[in-house]
Each structure stands twice: as C-alpha cells, then as structure tokens.
Design a binder for these strands. Structure first.
Lengths: 243, 243
DNA sequence: CCAAAAGTGTTCGCATTACACCCATGT
DNA sequence: ACATGGGTGTAATGCGAACACTTTTGG
C-alpha cells in the first residue's frame, strides 16, 4: 500500500507567561496550538494540527489552511520545515504516513484573538507532554530552526504587530534565544541592517522615556531563500536592475 | 485523486573539466548524473534520478537506492533538500506528484567509477539544458544549498577521498564557490576547526614541495543537524556527558 | 638555479562585545 | 526627586582579509 501524504504545521506565537498566575516580571513565552487526537493511533494524545493534502492544493496552501482551521488566524511567516517519512515512524502500524511539516509565526495581535476550539489547546513550547507520533521530535526541530533563524535572519518581527519598539523586538530575541541581549548593541545592529524604519510615532505608558516605534521595511526580504524565492513581480514601482 | 509521492536526488560530483578537450590548466567542475525520460510528460528530456517510494522504505533510503541504481555508487553525504508539491508544477496535467528531493555528494574515487547506463549521462552543473518538470529550479536550489553549506560547514571533503591535501580541499571550495580562496587563511581556518587531522603521509609528484595528507576527523559532525541528528549510539568508546 | 606550490608571519580593518554614561518620562 | 527604561559613546577584543616571506621539492 502506498504511503499516505499529510501536511502538518508547528505554529508558534509569543504569549504572556500564564504559568505563574500573573505574577510580576513575567516574560512572554513561546506557545503553540495542539489538537487532541480522537482515534487510534495515539487516541487522546496531543498532536500537531494537520491533515491530508487536498487535490489541487499546494503544500504551503495546506499548511495555511490547517492553520486557519485550528486557530482562525493567518501567519506572518510560513516555511517548510522537513518531510518526515521513515518507515519506522511511531504509529506506522496503523498505516504509513509521510508528513510534510511546515512551521509558522503568529503576530501578537492575532495571537490572543485565536479561537481555541473544543479540541484545540495552546501549550507552552518548553513544557510539552508526550505528543502523538514523533511530534515531540518535530517540535524540537522546529524550535531549533526558529532559534538559528532568528540569529541570522530578520524574522523576529513576525511575532509582533505592524509597529513595535526596539525593546519589544529585543524581547523576542531574548525569549527565543533564552538569553539576555545587550540593548545598545542590539539597537545598533538592527539599525545598521536597514530592515526597520522609524515611524515617527512613540509608545508612551511606561514610567520612563517613550520609545520610538518602528515598522518593518517590506522592501527587504526577511530571509535569503535562494532560488526558492518567489519570482519578483513586475510591478511599476519595483526597483529594476539595469533597465 | 490523491497526489503521487516520489523521491528524487540531485547528485553532485567533482570531475575534471572535459569541456575544453583536455586543455592545460583545467579546473575540476561540478557534474551531476541525469536520466532521460522515456515517456510523457517531457518525453526525451533529461530529469533527475528518482522514482516512487517503496513500501517499508524510508525517504532517505529511497534516495540512496535511486542513487545506487543510476550510478552504482554510495554517497559520502546525503541530505534532504525540499519537498516540492505545488498544484501547478509543470507536468501536473499527467498526474499530480509531490517530490521529496534529496541532494548528495560523491567522492573523487567513486566518481570516475560511476556506471553510465544507457539512459544516464553526466552533465556539467553550470551548463544544463532545459530539464523535465521543474528540475532546473530544483538543481538551482541544490546548488545554492551546496554553496551556502560549504561556507559554514565542513562538508567539502565529501567530494574527495579518504585522505587529501589542503590544496585539494581548498580547490573544492574554490570550484563550489566560484572564487579564489587564500591558501594561507584557508589552512589556518581548517586547522583551527580541528575537523581534519594530519596522517603523517605526504603526497609527492608535483614539481614542488610535497603536501601533507590529511584525514577527516570522524568524531566531528560535518553539519549541525540540530535535533534531527541521529541518536548517538551507545558504543563503549563514545564520549558520554556526565554519566 | 629556477619555478611552483607548501607553509609561516604580520598587519590592517571591521564587526562584535562589554560597559559607562546621558536623556526623557511617570509617579 | 528618583526610578526606569530609552538612547549614545567608547574602549577592548577577536576574526577574517590581504599579502610579504621562508621552505622544499622537481626539473
């Protein structure tokens, strides 16, 4: 029998730490939505959102659809993670499945609008129970990819809203990397990258100097995708090279 | 109808440049084996080696098998590249296919032992014709991955034999990156990485000082795979961490 | 002796790091 | 006033790029 093809998605969002019952000094944390399985194998266990690939639907489309169905949201960033298809994957006794897994980042505003359906629950990424199949391993890999990519790319803003302060952006780095980041050096690096432009607006409210609000420069690709990058659209406003 | 699942492999080897009819000063070049298609779609065009995934066979196993069947060789390095499954992939009219693509590196000794079957031919990677399906794009992506990975990993030796001189290793970098590399700095960087150990042997023959032969230190992983790295085998000689 | 590549030493510039310091706001 | 984070300045460090230089072989 030919292996079944499925698409799953590891969905990350930054949410306030609800573990310590709203104590002071709570940093946000990485959360991800999981779905409870209603049949064997792994009946009753938590699993990544996903399902079979529909006809006339691309792999990334399937990931987006799954994401929308389980959370009601659209991601700020979506990337293929890996195709898992070993013959000895856990659960293969009930039918062999090849899973193409994507991972996604959800913005701050969207994150707390998420519809948590009956079978869906958000869990803290660093305190997951035993998941169905090899999904713990998959989440570990997605976390690793998120961390390495935050270090050398400009994707951290995908956890935030349209505008954000450099403190907020730095906090994303700190939470993802799990270590403090020097504010002064972080500011200079981000500014030097040119990936971010000041809006002129400021965010007040703290008992301190208001912080400049920035917006991500959409002219800059957050990640170097190489030849997988989509063909540049021939819009009249696009910057052409040697016309 | 459910999409078919196939596994293809982009196989790279370094071979002497045969284009300039054995002229002097010929640098080696990147070559890859392709298979001619014998039916529609793309009848008569060159395509990547591959085929359907067999039952009870892992994805990487299928890639290895394909590689063995088309070249008679086993790779020094094999890595999953990407899963291509857009609904509008070229050739989808004749049945939708989701391709999990791997890429591989072949050693120097093996490379010229390759059996070139009736339907197989090696072509220079930088002068490919129009291939079947979206295989040009796939090869471009594999080349990009090879280049970026050579820059930050220690995989270049996979194009060479058991032992090699630093000049040979440097030449791999130069061919792959397409630019000259400073011999002095290259030597120091490689030595500092500890990825390579001198054998005590030297290679003579040139009209110059003999070069030290090195061997790759198998205790060092060539690439940081993160959580995808295979579980360390509990061999008695393995280095355990705080038992 | 000479050509050619192996191998060593040294300097320069740049990016990252660490940390001291001033600025602006709410209480 | 002062606590708090926003924002700037600057010296120390490390690393890679560039390149001069010595060494050892084959012819």
């Amino acid at each position: 029998m030919a292996p079944t093809l499925a698409v799953s998605t590891v969905i990350f969002a930054l949410r306030p730490d609800e573990r310590s019952s709203a104590a002071v000094g709570t940093r946000p944390q990485l959360w991800l939505p999981l779905v409870v399985r209603l049949r064997d194998p792994f009946d009753g266990r938590w699993a990544l959102p996903g399902g079979p690939l529909r006809e006339d639907e691309g792999l990334a489309d399937a990931a987006s659809r799954t994401l929308l169905e389980t959370t009601g949201l659209r991601p700020n960033y979506l990337e293929q993670l890996y195709a898992f298809g070993d013959a000895d994957r856990p659960g293969a006794e009930h039918g062999r499945v090849v899973s193409v897994v994507y991972w996604a980042m959800i913005g701050a505003e969207e994150a707390h609008l998420a519809t948590t359906g009956q079978n869906v629950r958000w869990l803290a990424a660093d305190r997951l129970p035993d998941l169905a199949f090899d999904h713990n391993r998959i989440v570990d890999y997605a976390l690793w990819r998120l961390r390495t990519k935050v270090e050398y790319s400009r994707i951290a803003h995908a956890f935030l809203g349209e505008t954000f302060t450099l403190r907020e952006l730095r906090e994303v780095h700190e939470v993802v990397l799990g270590k403090p980041v020097d504010p002064a050096n972080f500011r200079r690096q981000v500014e030097a990258s040119g990936a971010v432009v000041p809006t002129g607006q400021v965010r007040t409210g703290g008992r301190h100097r208001p912080a400049q609000l920035y917006r991500y420069d959409t002219a800059i690709e957050p990640v170097d995708l190489g030849p997988l990058a989509p063909e540049p659209q021939k819009s009249p406003t696009s910057t052409e090279e040697t016309p």
